[in-house]
Design a protein around this nucleic acid. Sequence first.
RNA 1: GCCGGAGUGGCGGAAUUGGUAGACGCAAGGGACUUAAAAUCCCUCGUUCCGAAAGAACGUACCGGUUCGAGUCCGGUCUCCGGCACCA
Length: 828
Amino acid sequence: MKEKYEPSGVEFKWQRYWAEKKLFVSKADHARQKFYCLEMFPYPSGEIHMGHVRNYVIGDVIARYKRMRGYNVLHPMGWDAFGLPAENAAIKHGVHPSKWTHGNIEKMRRQLDSMGLSYDWTREVTTCKPEYYKWNQWFFLKMLENGLAYRKDSYVNWCPSCMTVLANEQVIDSACWRCETPVTQKRLGQWFFKITEYAEELLKGCDELQGWPERVIHMQKNWIGKGEGVEVDFPVEGMEEKLRIFTTRPDTLFGVTFMCIAPEHPLTEKLVKDRKSLETIESKYGKGDEKIGLDTGYFAINPLNRDRIPIFVANFVIMEYGTGAIMSVPAHDQRDFDFAKKYDLPVKVVILPEIPPNPPLIKGGSPNLEQLTEAYEDEGILVDSGQFTGLRSEIARQEIIRFIEEKELGRSAVNYKLRDWGISRQRYWGTPIPIVYCDRCGIVPVPEESLPVILPEDVKITGKGGSPLLESRTFLSTDCPRCRGKARRETDTMDTFVDSSWYFARYCFEKGDIDLPACLSAPKSEFTYWMPVDQYIGGVEHAVLHLLYSRFFTRVMRDLDLIKISEPFQNLLTQGMVIKDGAKMSKSKGNVVDPNYLIEKYGSDTARLFSLFAAPPEKDLEWSDRGVEGAYRFLNRIWGIVYKNRRNIQNSLSRVDYRTLRPGASGLYRKTHQTIKKVTTDIEREYHFNTAIAALMELVNEITSFQPETGEDRATFKFAVQQVILLLSPFCPHIAEELWEATGHNPSVIEHKWPEWDEDAAREDTIELVIQVNGKLRSKTLITRGTPDEEMKKIALEDEKIREIAGNKKIKNVIVVKGKLVNIVIGE
RNA sequence: GCCGGAGUGGCGGAAUUGGUAGACGCAAGGGACUUAAAAUCCCUCGUUCCGAAAGAACGUACCGGUUCGAGUCCGGUCUCCGGCACCA
């Protein structure tokens, strides 16, 4: 052991040791309790950033802690290797995406290893390898077979800069999620996964995700966006077709004064003759707050009260939700209200608040329009609503739905905001969609036995036009699997979110070319052993996209009879961002801290310790250079303690009777047990590593101020130091290994059992009794543990300071909190 | 607009069920060691009153309530952060 702590040598030594001894290679063992710890795999951009460091360090601490607790831990890592940046690099630097990606993976794997992360690399997943994406294609075929994948012409979000279609989830503030270019609409033939088929199940499943943060569950529920209501058919004057609308507020049906349909609604073409005006509406479609409409001149009839109401085409009505047509109730919907004001349409109040406002909404039987400056959207009592007048909204809804169904005017219906998942991308670096277009047979799926459809390497990536695959003759032209005639391959590739929707399942098996369905469905398979993921850790930015798709895919796998579970991730931890100077670290803001630099200067143990200590994992972490220094200082102190006392520690007794220790030593002994307890419970309770580390620091402070004199003292000292090393090892594994060895143990500390505390040893004999007067702290005094309440009361009342304060005043009451506090209530 | 989450010293953050507010760390100030500096070690460190100590008052965004006792519970207000956003 060196006198001075030199992290780089120590860390390299132990990283090699772990790798050589294969300490992190896991094996399914149905006799042992498992723990599957997973961090979201990175995109191999080439550089590890602070966000990665934080994510992976949290996961590593959990994995290492669970290993010491005796679990059979699976802790894998891989690469989300398909995606746009590889193509951008190809355009910019002329490197092939494959070469660029694999080079980055090598680089990043080394960086991860330099952080001492305990991964089982024998299970490494790389999504751009045919042995992996082959199964994307297989899942696609199975979904096609089961009606869960389909092709549809539709308007899609088109990024003019990336020249590709974006999923709804990839559009942020009507701009591209990557380059922020405003998104336009384009009509294209697209492949979709029918995630809406699972909308209800995915929503209900949310309630069983007890180990997930509430905000993520809220976001998922919000995203699925269930709306319960009713569909009603409105007859149109002079037309056979009825206009079907969807509403969640049937209690407002008597207040309809106009109707609006979406520009792409099938009836629009029939109703509107004026093409030019329609184009104006279309150009403002879905943009901004301005609501514009076009009066079709046609009228619909309210089937409930026979009111004759005008039909408009409006830019704010979405075709994809509900029926693409709405009934407008300006008195009780703000958008309709704004629209009515603009086009001077009548407002009819049909709901009054239970507690009438002053001045009233209705005056002499008609709306008090001066008072009505905005829509009344809350519930209330129905007025002017035929036989439903006088009912409360909640009751009226049920009654009206029943009436509509009885008279066959419509039916109750449920709508979701969730749309089907468009997976087609006009890009090169992704999984080819296994489809062939044949002039004679049409759309033909590639047969299972022909998988994988290999992504050709011999393409030129220029960044101009559509997919580079269009220019690859060898890829493009093929034989139709059905008629053997000439056919053309699908050139679209899959959204990379497909790759990450099941990678957690792939980790259950060793890397290489496996028969995935056979492996998954085998009885007592490795999948059934390892899954579900016990702890998943990643950024909150994936709260809806990746996490929802994974839940969907798991259900699809279940319904393909491959697996039995429905939910992939039992517990989810969404770690906060890494902040510097008040903003998220990013290259564009120029506030990044390079992890490599940090590791070189202080070592990865310091980097790990700081990122764990500065904030609890779910909160944002404010970067502080001085804080890093502090973490480094702490490790140096421990090193110094062990170095200075190495002979004592090695030679001292290992067993003494701790009950007969002199006060100083017994204090340290007690503190040690208290620390084991505190560190353990802090980790168990929501992974509060910051307070666990604070407790370790307290113990180290006590060790520092303890001067061993007797043999028993030295044994106590040794015990305390050993426990510090053990408790520190998940956080700072390299230095822990080195110190463990230096104190005369055989490696490896990480194979050692997690320490246990003795409740009796941790308990304090003397307690500081807090004495309050009228709830204010007035005095403190020491009492022995177990002092009865009556005795505590007596001690408090006899306390000198208390007598001084209380004087002759009347004591009204005395409250005793067992073993803690006495509060004396006195009068004036 | 809707839905979440959060507001505690100079800073990051503790306070687990209503019971000593500010653990631990950082920064700052003072001291020891040193020719000097760095490193290390020791002391002080919420605000105000006081020369200091003792002591007291105030203090967990703001206002009010419940309680013997509130950072914690209840009602209201404000601010910040995040998500969704014409979803009928």
